[in-house]
Design a protein around this nucleic acid. Sequence first.
RNA 1: GGUGCGGUAGCCAAGUGGUAAGGCAAGAGUCUGCAAAACUUUUAUUCGUCGGUUCGAUUCCGACUCGCACCUCCA
Length: 466
Amino acid sequence: MALRFYNSLSQQLEPFTPQDGKTVRMYTCGPTVYHYAHIGNLRTFTFQDILRRWLRASGFALNNVMNITDVEDKIIRTAMAQGKTLREYTAQYEEAFLEDMATLRLERPERVVRATEHIDEMVDLIQKLGEKGFTYESDGSTYYRISKFPEYGKLSHNDFGGMIAGARVDVDEYEKDDARDFVLWKQKKEGEPSWDTPIGDGRPGWHIECSAMAMKYLGATLDIHAGGIDLQFPHHENEIAQSEAVTGKQFAKFWLHAEHLIVEGQKMSKSLGNFYTLRDLLELGYAPETVRFLLESVPYRNKLNFTMDGVKAAATAIERLRNFELRLKTEKFAPGGEAASEERTAAAVTRFREAMDDDLNTAGALGVVFEFLRDTNSAMDGGKFLAGNVASAQGLLNLFDSVFDVMRPTTVAGGISDEAVEALIAERVAAKKARNFGRADAVRAELDAQGIVLEDTKDGPRWKRK
RNA sequence: GGUGCGGUAGCCAAGUGGUAAGGCAAGAGUCUGCAAAACUUUUAUUCGUCGGUUCGAUUCCGACUCGCACCUCCA
């Protein structure tokens, strides 16, 4: 089965190929930089990273644009309260966000673009919408007239026929013709940052930035547009309305939405005290790759219950993977090759690919890897895994890690060097040989204190960092 | 009220019209100077409840129930 994704637009799994057959033109909704990213945000960005990596593993090139929303009500309010310019205020969080991405090993999209640097494109788009009759002005602000776009609702599959009973009625400070209409350009308020443009002195609405930047860099029709589930409505619905009204072309072939994360079974919120940033978790002593593994382990369309037990389980699971690789690299296998082992590895590769091809079923893919680990460990114990089987097994691990990226421990600065460890181990080996177990145990304790775990195997001692 | 998602072992979590992956935890074992670590192994007659379709359903359909999300800013 070929690569396929669940398309929110059709609500079905669809086979995926980029329009030109080679390069995937993808737009991913990035962060609003008014606070540190929380673990829920990072779940979505981890999904986008997995998506990128698997597209590449499937043989496609990537052209991925991610936006940074750096102008928006909350940003303006807080920046002004702190007496800072927009840029001064957002720079710190943008930097922190990019740092968090790097820490979690999330690849940097080919282009990361700021909303404030694309005001001209937004204004241009709004003017085009105006020429086509999709806008109206009210109190100096410009709105999108949804009644002019009959397909409105096709992404969120909402019925907008009339007011929605039970839903809270929109209370906007501006006058709109229809409660559904959304603002494209907001008139300047006294003292707030603004841009003086042909459509007035003001600032852009939230939705227009993505349409403008996506089409500027990726053309009228994207292969993939991805983001968090909460953006499906109204943000993405509005992007479609803006973009398709102007181009008359389908805005995105595929819409991929990542489910939210909950913490200890509850919605994450500051009031519940279960609101975590990556920094919080690192301070608790968890390695970045442990957090990454946990975020990856549940398929993106399912809610992920983030628990401290889960983080600990993730850490142990990674240990198991690393132990296997260590064994693969250090054990002296007998010469020759075992056909059964080659077949097992080849089957695992196929099944791993099938799981990932199936809408990025990371849980299934992990199952394949762990099953492979168990069976291969058994084969090694039984002498059915030979030197000639190492390369392909390592190849499977490499394929796995090219997507999951958890094998490499995050290095801690200032630790004991590899050479020093080796020297101590050599000393212990000598002590053991001389049956000086007191000294041997002392060395082991010393290494332990340095965060080094020593393992005696039939091929001699091997070690790893905790 | 509308829309959508989900209820699978102690916890997390895949999955299929043909009789339940995997991870963690727990029990047992192997190895070892002692350890540690590692590895192996055991653990759901059962997939929210009740009906229906079927030779056969956890998997399809219906009802019910519980939980969640969105419909307003939100990854």
